[in-house]
Design a protein around this nucleic acid. Structure first.
Lengths: 344, 344
DNA sequence: CGGGCTTATGATAGCGCAAACATTTGCGCT
DNA sequence: AGCGCAAATGTTTGCGCTATCATAAGCCCG
């Protein structure tokens, strides 16, 4: 190991230690780290050497306290197990990382009360901005967020009254459109299966039901939901429920996500029900598997990665005083027709 | 809204503001928050009221600085898109949350250099412990971690020389066992398909190849790998490569994960290859879909959630001076035989 | 009934850093 | 030569909190 080894026994080196070693003042070291253009090359080198040889790592708490800049973006998602958020997070992390922001991520377990608690925790870290899922916050949570006086982006769905900024799409409209498309492919008796039933799933369901209602095709017995978390296994169970509720007449099902849809598809195969000739299936989220499974699964594609990127970009724009063009963005969706629904 | 509304215009309330409002000293407010048993009920109430009415949220940076306790656990994973880590993270978040620790999560994109950078970032937050994936750190990263003088758990694989603590299992042995099991089901010509080829995938491959080698069954033409990230689509492509490399003779394939395995299965279906009678397939990780797909997929089940829980528990034990029983834990795995491999 | 407790509260100092202001230096220009 | 200005570096102060020690108030016991 080259150079002087630090006395690993004692405490972490501080700015002052580095300053002493480089024979400069503390603020010069600080400048080397934060405003390198304001320091001469000679000092920069000397300081950098001292930093390296001491293995100095800045204390972010002290820095945050002194500068009131934490470099943290707080992110609230409702579930770590729901892989839908992976892509969104990837987008957020990518942009945040490029802007030298850290991400503090919390899981609210689909509970507004837990969300309130988590937001309090996040705010105690003095984040410079927040990204938060949906619009279903408690009053007290909303108050904290607005008092924090930082950019907030609500993601995953378009909201009538965003707290601040908003990136998403209309789940209601998506559900509505799915109903229309399924009817166009020749389905007569449409059902819906949904799990977890968070607000976004409810909106998909509402849109779906509204479209059927308008066309006098709604049979509410065929709308089967459960508060249980979604899974492939559950998709199979719910399929059976709908089939039996319809007396075997159902010929098209909108599944609130691709997990349920796959479960329903696998179960159809086991029950020897032909998809799509006897039963059309449509999922939601368009996972990779949906395109490759046999028969491939019709689903609603959502640009999740792009949603994360966009949310993070709006925040960076705001933080850098580049006021973003839009404070609300509809990121859209696309119904991808595949083999699990009939060709028109 | 009941009570006095805070002057939302100005800055965030501080301990001192609360103390003034409650007519106590600052330290008393601090005690109410951190050592409530040391304050009389009367003062506790008065202080709590002041906190509520001011909407006071503690400044964690100041607290960390003064107490050198950040309440943060740093976590490094190689990929946010690899859903394998979702379960691990869920376990970590659950235990960390119960212990009132926050999780700072970073993504190293499978690069030791990026990992080093991320570890530096994490350490600047003064985490009280770190969880980090695998054993493939740079020298400099190892040095930083050991100098940090905090508990470190390396997860996902068992290591010969852990930096500190370790929870995982032997990927080599798992690969070895898969080869043995596939041979036992009557396969003669075994292939391997692997993507990304991080150290753990390599070890699975090495174990698999060693078992074949020992039995004189290794044909290295049938070991097909790519550094590309894994996907279902890629599984299909790699399947075709192995089949053509074997001149159609391959009758069993170990896929380095379930994504590839599903891709291979879907592609087999499209190519009209019967699974398992013409071709046996074995995946790795045992995703939920693997149990429900038709034919269901033989895979190596890994207790990922439990691994996350265990890692976090070892850390909490350490932080609370309850020295953990073991500093290294083999969390095991299980080969789950399903329809994609023949019954013995 | 007073010495030595515990318990409840307060005063002070300092954690490590960066903002704000102060000082020094060098340089161009008249 | 000397003024003015910019660039480079330093000094001081305080961010908001908690550790530490100090103090005050009750309380037990012989």
């Amino acid at each position: 190991m080259a150079g002087r080894t630090r006395n690993s026994s004692s405490k972490r080196a501080t700015l002052a230690d580095v300053a002493r070693a480089a024979n400069v003042s503390a603020i010069t070291v600080s400048r080397v780290l934060n405003h390198p253009d304001k320091v001469s090359d000679e000092l920069k080198n000397r300081v950098q050497q001292a930093i390296d040889s001491l293995g100095y790592i800045p204390n972010q708490s002290a820095s945050s306290l002194a500068s009131s800049k934490s470099g943290v973006i707080g992110v609230c998602i409702p579930s770590l197990s729901n892989v839908v958020f992976n892509d969104v997070l990837r987008g957020i992390y990518q942009v945040a990382g490029e802007g030298n922001y850290k991400v503090l991520l919390v899981d609210t377990h689909y509970s507004p009360l837990e969300e309130e608690k988590m937001v309090r925790t996040l705010l105690s870290q003095s984040p410079e901005a927040m990204i938060i899922t949906g619009g279903d916050q408690t009053r007290s949570c909303e108050r904290m967020l607005s008092q924090a006086n930082i950019p907030v982006v609500q993601i995953m769905e378009t909201l009538e009254q965003p707290l601040d900024m908003n990136v998403g799409f209309s789940h209601y409209q998506a559900g509505y459109d799915v109903a229309v498309r399924l009817l166009e492919t020749g389905c007569h008796t449409l059902g819906f299966i949904g799990a977890r039933m968070d607000t976004r799933v409810q909106q998909r369901m509402n849109g779906f039901m509204a479209a059927l209602q308008e066309r006098d095709r709604l049979d509410s017995k065929l709308i089967v939901t459960t508060p249980q978390p979604s899974s492939i296994a559950l998709g199979g169970e719910l399929l059976r429920s709908v089939i039996s509720a319809s007396g075997g007449k159902v010929d098209g099902i909108f599944c609130c996500n691709d997990d349920l849809a796959m479960g329903a598809l696998f179960e159809s195969q086991r029950m020897n029900i032909q998809v799509p000739s006897q039963l059309a299936l449509c999922g939601f989220n368009d996972f990779e598997a949906s395109a490759y499974i046999n028969p491939s699964l019709t689903s609603v594609h959502v640009p999740r990665f792009e949603m994360g990127v966009k949310a993070a970009q709006m925040i960076l724009d705001q933080l850098q005083e580049r006021v973003p063009a839009n404070r609300q963005v509809d990121i859209g969706y696309e119904i991808v027709m595949r083999q699990s629904t009939a060709v028109v």
